[in-house]
Simulated assay, not measured.
Amino acid sequence: MTASTLPGNGSSLAVGTWMVTLRGLKKVLRSPQIIALGMVQSVAFLLIFRYVFGGAIGTGGMRYVDYMVPGLLTVTGLFAGIGAASAAAEDLKEGFFDRLRSLPMPRTAVIAGQVISETARVTWILAITTGLAFATGFRTHAGWGSALAALGLCALFGFAFVWVFVTLGLLSGSPQAAQGFGFLALPLSFVSSAYVPVETMPRWLQAFAEHQPVTVMIDAVRAVTQGGAAETLLGHSTGHYVARALIWTAAIIGVFGTIAVTRFRRP
């Protein structure tokens, strides 16, 4: 990407974002193993919890596969975004971001383009995992529209955490350190309602598990896909959980988006 590729001396935010996004998408397409690794992890979790652990976990009358898949999809969006941390750190270390700073384009466009391209990768992995989930017996009980709405929520949540991981990549200083920071997602994913009801956890752990953002989004996706059965199990309406999930998502994007852009603007 050079100055000659930009439309004049003041590239718009939209054009600059699109150019960085396109570069990120091409980079992913040239390294298909990045997508393959994310899919292998999601499929492994799906099969293990569906066929190995599922028969031993009670979920209050709901079929375990219907309980587990909304959690799995939410966590998939989280884990698939981890690669954004090392990608951002690598671009920073190799001087790609320094070259972009010298071009007449908004600084926000650079980070936004990076986030959008990573989110496209996350969404693709989510779509494949959703198809496999239906193949293993998962069913929605509120119509196909609910399945699309749930996928949209998971993609939005993945978008929010891509901002988190890009920020960690910019702050880490190296791709190796960034990859290590990414595994901070582990406690958020497992200390949640993804695979087991929060009520089965020790009391001292329940407060964190119930109110942390991953559980909030999982409950929203579960309520959207399972309708009345999930509302009975969870205790509130679908709108209640979706509203909480959107508030958490907006807060994550606002906080980490601000940090990422601020860090990028500082040489």
Rank of each mutant, 00 (worst) to 15 (best):
M1D: 12
A3G: 13
A3P: 02
G10P: 00
G10H: 11
S11F: 00
G16V: 01
T17F: 03
T17W: 02
W18G: 02
V20R: 00
T21C: 12
R23D: 12
K27Y: 14
K27N: 13
L29P: 00
R30Y: 08
P32L: 07
Q33R: 12
L37T: 12
G38R: 07
M39I: 15
S42M: 13
S42C: 13
S42K: 05
V43W: 12
F45E: 08
L46A: 05
I48N: 01
F49R: 03
F49T: 07
F49Q: 02
Y51E: 05
G54R: 09
G55P: 05
I57G: 08
I57M: 11
I57E: 07
M62Q: 08
R63A: 15
R63S: 13
D66G: 04
M68I: 02
V69Y: 14
L73I: 14
G77A: 06
A80R: 02
A80L: 07
I82D: 03
A85D: 08
A85T: 06
A87E: 07
A89F: 14
L92Y: 10
L92T: 11
L92G: 06
G95L: 11
F97H: 09
R99M: 04
R101H: 12
P104T: 10
M105S: 04
P106K: 10
T108P: 04
A112M: 14
Q114I: 12
I116W: 15
S117Y: 11
A120D: 05
A127L: 15
G131P: 10
L132K: 11
A133L: 09
F138T: 03
F138N: 05
R139Y: 02
H141Q: 09
S146L: 02
A147F: 10
A149C: 01
A150K: 01
A150V: 04
G152I: 02
A155T: 11
G158C: 12
A160S: 14
V164E: 01
F165H: 12
L171A: 15
S174L: 04
P175Q: 06
Q179D: 11
Q179K: 10
G182S: 12
L184H: 00
A185Q: 08
A185T: 13
P187I: 10
P187A: 13
P187R: 12
V191P: 01
S192I: 04
V196T: 14
V198F: 09
E199Y: 05
M201A: 12
P202H: 10
L205D: 01
Q206M: 07
A207F: 14
A207S: 14
P213N: 03
V214A: 06
T215A: 13
M217P: 04
R222L: 09
V224A: 01
V224K: 00
T225S: 12
T225F: 01
Q226M: 14
G227P: 03
G228C: 00
A229W: 00
A230H: 00
T232F: 03
L233V: 05
H236N: 11
H240Q: 00
A243C: 06
R244Q: 15
A245P: 08
A250C: 05
A250Q: 04
A251N: 06
I253S: 02
I253Q: 02
F256L: 08
G257L: 13
G257D: 14
